[in-house]
Simulated scan of single mutants.
Amino acid sequence: MTHLEEQHQSRIDMMSKAIKSIAFKKQQTTKAFQKGDEVEVASQEHGFIGSYYTATIVSSIGAYHYKVKYKTLLTNDQSAPLEEIVSVSEVRPVPPDQHEIMLKNNLRLYDMIDVFDNDGWWFGLITGKIGSKYSVYFPTTGDQIAYPPDVLRFHQEWSNGKWIFLPRQGKMFGLY
């Protein structure tokens, strides 16, 4: 392995640790959602950690749970949208649309992004570019897959009632 390859792998390892720590933490819930609100639900199931699914609030269940109806997930028999009860710590608002931001900012090596795949948004990082597609590594699953830019968005975290863009990681490493 060359020095550059070692540096690249070291950066991926460091970024992977950061992504895992973010993906495994509970959402900071500072907002009470109402019936009909569109939200994203963070999966806490093994193999799905780091994924978010769009849903609508059906009702509040006490102070710590919501009943949600998913937009893209279906019941086992595929006959209707899946409804389930989730903890408030798994729910966040839907991030703002990023179409304009994505047009203005080219994706770069080590950017933390979300990819829409398998009915939800998956948290990963860009590890390269292959033609017009971006190679994305998912630390919580160990997968690396190439995607076109139209299914990518910059990753954001809901914190203290605001959406926070994570710093562009390439800048941290002086890559651009």
Rank of each mutant, 00 (worst) to 15 (best):
M14K: 07
W122Y: 14
K129S: 15
I101N: 05
G47Q: 04
K17Q: 09
L107H: 04
D77C: 05
G62V: 15
R11S: 03
H8L: 15
E6I: 10
A32T: 07
M1R: 09
S87W: 01
F24H: 09
L4N: 06
L73D: 06
P93Q: 10
D150M: 10
Q98T: 12
S51D: 00
Q34V: 08
D114G: 10
V58Q: 00
T29I: 10
K133R: 13
G124A: 11
R11W: 03
V86Y: 00
W158P: 02
Y147N: 08
H3S: 08
N106E: 07
I101F: 07
A146W: 07
I61S: 02
L73Q: 06
R11A: 02
G174I: 11
E90F: 05
I19T: 11
S10T: 07
K133Y: 14
T2N: 09
I145C: 14
L103N: 03
V86D: 00
E83T: 15
G120Q: 04
P167D: 09
L109A: 10
W121V: 02
Y64P: 01
G131K: 15
Q78D: 10
Y134D: 01
Y176L: 15
I19S: 01
A23I: 09
T141I: 14
V94M: 04
E6P: 01
G36Y: 06
R11G: 01
I85Y: 01
K133L: 07
G62M: 12
V151C: 08
R168Y: 04
S21T: 08
L109D: 02
A55Q: 07
D13G: 06
T29W: 03
E84C: 09
G50V: 08
G174C: 08
L73V: 08
E5K: 07
Y134N: 06
D114I: 15
G142M: 07
K67Y: 02
A146P: 13
H3M: 09
K71M: 13
K20I: 14
L109H: 01
M102Q: 08
L74K: 12
R11Q: 10
W158H: 14
K69Y: 01
V86W: 00
L73E: 04
Q27G: 14
L107A: 03
I126F: 01
I49D: 01
S16Q: 03
L74I: 15
Q7I: 13
M15H: 02
T127K: 02
K67R: 05
I49N: 01
V94S: 08
R153P: 03
F165T: 06
S59G: 05
P81K: 15
Q34M: 05
V91H: 02
T75V: 09
K104W: 13
V115F: 04
I22M: 06
M112D: 00
P95I: 10
F116S: 12
L166R: 15
H99R: 11
T140R: 01
